[in-house]
Design a protein around this nucleic acid. Sequence first.
DNA 1: TCACGTATCGTACTCAGGTACTAGGAGTGT
DNA 2: ACACTCCTAGTACCTGAGTACGATACGTGA
Lengths: 203, 203
Amino acid sequence: MRCTAFHLLSDDESLCARLRGASAEPPHRLAAHGELATLANGEVALIDIASPGLPPLQAPFWRVQCERLKIGILSPSPSDGEGLLALEAGAHGYGHSYAAEHSLQQMLDVIASGELWVGRSLMARLLKGVRQASVVSGKGWQVLLTEREREVASMAAMGESNLSIANALGITERTVKSHLTTIFDKLDVTDRLQLALRIHGIR
Amino acid sequence: MRCTAFHLLSDDESLCARLRGASAEPPHRLAAHGELATLANGEVALIDIASPGLPPLQAPFWRVQCERLKIGILSPSPSDGEGLLALEAGAHGYGHSYAAEHSLQQMLDVIASGELWVGRSLMARLLKGVRQASVVSGKGWQVLLTEREREVASMAAMGESNLSIANALGITERTVKSHLTTIFDKLDVTDRLQLALRIHGIR
DNA sequence: TCACGTATCGTACTCAGGTACTAGGAGTGT
DNA sequence: ACACTCCTAGTACCTGAGTACGATACGTGA
């Protein structure tokens, strides 16, 4: 879905120029953030976060507007922290205001269709938050196991049941048990909890 | 940037039909996941995760291929968990294999340009993960528990059996079980392994 | 050819873990 | 006095996990 029309709040003429071909109609310029309140629900708006007089991203103003509008935040100096704030405020997108034209247009199209647009760096940061130390510090255990055993071991260490492991790997629960018995023996542990502690580097 | 050509691994004819107009050329069909290894670096491939014979997302196979290719994972029954696995494996996109044509095309264009494509639900999950990771997982579990429960919880999370916990604390095994039931309920986990993962800051 | 490792699967068994339902005593705040 | 939380504990029950016997098949190297 191509974005047909959108609003823009920015003093940056170069940004405006790059956005001129990004939708069927040229962007409608907003003079101040207060005008956001006058837009109809579901409309698309790009906000240059460097514009003077904007409330901080933590302000309730953004949560309210992001509820009803599709808002993309552009920053001349994007950071993961700022991106997190933007997304937590409910923004549909966060990106670089000096990004290339096709990149801006893509962001516009994505958020116009109701999805979220997030750059790679920020995405990596998000994943890191979820994953944390999930895939392990000590590598000693890996070299002791075969390829298949490593798969089973890491799933068991993440709390998966034998049955769900079996389904995920397309084998029988019995076979999973068989692998686990071998794994416990090789790593010198007695059960899956000890295995998890070992794999996640706790004692 | 429009995606010009891409590869597709799926048995689903309807999916293939919906993708026919999504790029300049019709999708090149792959017969088996092994063929991914024959593609040139940087090429775009959509993978229907329901295709028979695929290795699980945890398998090193995906990490390797996602390093060199731009891979989008499609699932007939997407879940946040599966999406996380896909992204952690290095996939550039994760979405619904029954998604509308324009949605699939958008995903294709986004990952072709090197960015990441993630649905709303999964994104929300990621954000929640960051918030929890930064706020809760540090000591959040401790404030939810009473003094006695903290003792039991930390011992259980270190792999102690109910009986040894009971002996250490001078109470009955039954009482330990009772505490644990309360603990599981408070921390919203199902067993001692999940408890250990929670307490040790893994997811 | 044969030994060996790896991956797969079967049946049967034991046992720790977890739940359901219940309940008494101690302490605390209203 | 009453409500509430916390710690304690009993019986009964179900289930997943792990083990103990197996077994077949495949590939590799001696």
